[in-house]
């Protein structure tokens, strides 16, 4: 089995009210140095070896992300990386 992690985030310029609100809360807690918070999605996929990176990219383009408003990044989780 292969494990992949997909990060989906709003494109730059897409207003993220949840991120902005959270940044305000961090500021209220005294963390003055936090310039920006962006909140996105984290998707884990466990796949058998037949699934290619090209197919994962296709999955992101078709369904997991909406390319009009979101960017995505696919990361392969290496064997033994988890405890």
């Amino acid at each position: 089995m292969m494990r992949y992690e997909v990060y989906v985030t709003g494109k730059p310029g897409i207003f993220d009210p949840a991120g902005k609100t959270t940044a305000g809360a961090l500021s209220n807690l005294g963390y003055a140095g936090v310039a920006q918070v962006r909140i996105g999605k984290f998707i884990q996929l466990s796949c058998d070896d037949s699934v290619s990176l090209e197919q994962l990219t296709e999955m992101c383009e078709k369904l997991l992300a909406n390319p009009i408003i979101e960017d995505y990044r696919i990361e392969e989780v290496l064997e033994g990386a988890e405890g």
Binding site: I14, F15, P17, A18, T21, N66, I68, I69
Partner: peptide
């Protein structure tokens, strides 16, 4: 319809959450 790209653009969460 926007997700199907039969119409342009997208609908985000309301600005005031």
């Amino acid at each position: 319809l926007t997700e199907a790209q039969l119409l342009p653009g997208a609908l985000l969460r309301n600005r005031g959450l």
